[in-house]
Design a protein around this nucleic acid. Structure first.
Lengths: 226, 226
DNA sequence: ATGAAGTGTAAAGAAATGTAAAAGTTTGGA
DNA sequence: TCCAAACTTTTACATTTCTTTACACTTCAT
């Protein structure tokens, strides 16, 4: 569930929006001036901010500028209809979108979802780019050469780590022993080489889930839920 | 330089926008119907697409829907002013933003930058500028031959410093012992030469993080937090 | 069922690594 | 020049990691 912070001095509007958003599956909280809005926004408990430009004490642009010093939280700004300048300034100092008042609540939701989707995707892209593999309860960072099971660091040897990565990269597909030997042990497999089997055995012990299955006379597969 | 594909049947508008965008530092190319627009968009040579809704042969929504089957390229849609429905549909099927026509070119640029900012933030993590290596909490100035951990000067010997630089330059990749011996100790490694291992051991003590990992029978790797 | 081939894994053996301490080398000042 | 401190390399041994061996067990074709 996404938590959204609404910063707007119009309490009636806040209530209306909150109601609509809760129907759409968002959790909301609203504050009515810039200073306390900024404080809340920096508190790290929200996924997104809806920010009005016209505010008592500290206007929306000032809040946004302050916020962007340290935070990347997505911000959708509410502006007066037709004021192009305001829209531009907002986007240039780091708003993710704006919506002119008065707005259609359906459109508000569509925009919120568009922004969240964007953020989510770039996060995933970044993870992939940096070599993160995340399958069910195991999480592997290739760059950090660390593997976690249920959030807890696994103490894997170098070969075990490479083996896990090789399997996770092809999760759900059978990986032939020949391939594993080449990528993990860096040599061709020979008829009585049991080294790989031993590493599988040790890895299974450490993972302690039954995800690594054997495909007789072919290789191994890391199975996924669903 | 970012390459932008403009899909709009209004050739005059395409030219105007292209001109404006080139001044702002973008490269552009324009096509005037949906089918060839889709083809271009899938060609992987653009960083972003500006897509008009009203198009001959294949309208903007159809193009977007097709495009989203396989591509995550950012798309900004151009819609008729005031048509909420269009905006919403566009966002829901995967546009990253929309802009109602007629639009202020400054606003177009602001929106393009906002979207690209989101997408491009990935590349900023490692700075390798003017002889400085900065990875997580260690910072090395090659020119000054100084290394800092959490802002505090590390008292490294000459070999330790060179070793750290050699590892940081390839952070996230395994550096073979042979290479390290050549670049750091300036000699070929021999079977029972343990000098490098000692320097690694001493460097690890001083760094006091667990970033330097061993890859048995290959070399060492400086791992990164992601 | 029966045997051949493949697999699981404990345990022994081999190889590589970690590191304290000794030995050798360099450096900078008196 | 000589010495002492700082640095590097070698030595030696403990430890870890990887491979091989050995044997019990499973699977599959006959």
């Amino acid at each position: 569930m996404n938590k959204i912070l609404i910063i707007d001095d119009d309490e009636e509007l806040c209530e209306l929006v909150s109601e609509y958003l809760s129907v759409e599956g968002f959790q909301t909280e609203d504050v009515h001036d810039g200073a306390s809005g900024l404080q809340k926004a920096l508190s790290d408990e929200f996924d997104m901010v809806i920010l009005d430009v016209m505010l008592p004490k500290m206007n929306g642009f000032d809040v946004l500028r302050e916020l962007r010093q340290t935070s990347q939280i997505p911000v959708l700004m509410l502006t007066a209809r037709g004021d192009d300048m305001e829209r531009i300034v907002g986007l240039e100092i780091g708003a993710d979108d704006y919506l002119p008042k008065p707005f259609n609540p359906r459109e508000l939701v569509a925009r919120l979802r568009a922004i969240l989707r964007r953020v989510q995707e770039t996060k995933e892209d970044r993870e992939v780019e940096n070599g993160k593999l995340h399958i069910d309860n195991v999480e592997v960072s290739v760059a950090a050469r660390s593997a976690k099971l249920d959030g807890e660091e696994l103490n894997l040897t170098s070969v075990e780590f490479d083996l896990l990565v090789a399997l996770l990269k092809e999760a759900g597909k059978v990986v032939p022993k020949e391939d594993l030997s080449r990528t993990v042990l860096d040599r061709e497999i020979s008829p009585f080489d049991r080294s790989l089997d031993m590493h599988i055995s040790n890895l299974r012990k450490k993972l302690d889930n039954d995800r690594i299955k054997t495909i007789r006379s072919v290789g191994y597969i890391y199975t996924m839920n669903i």
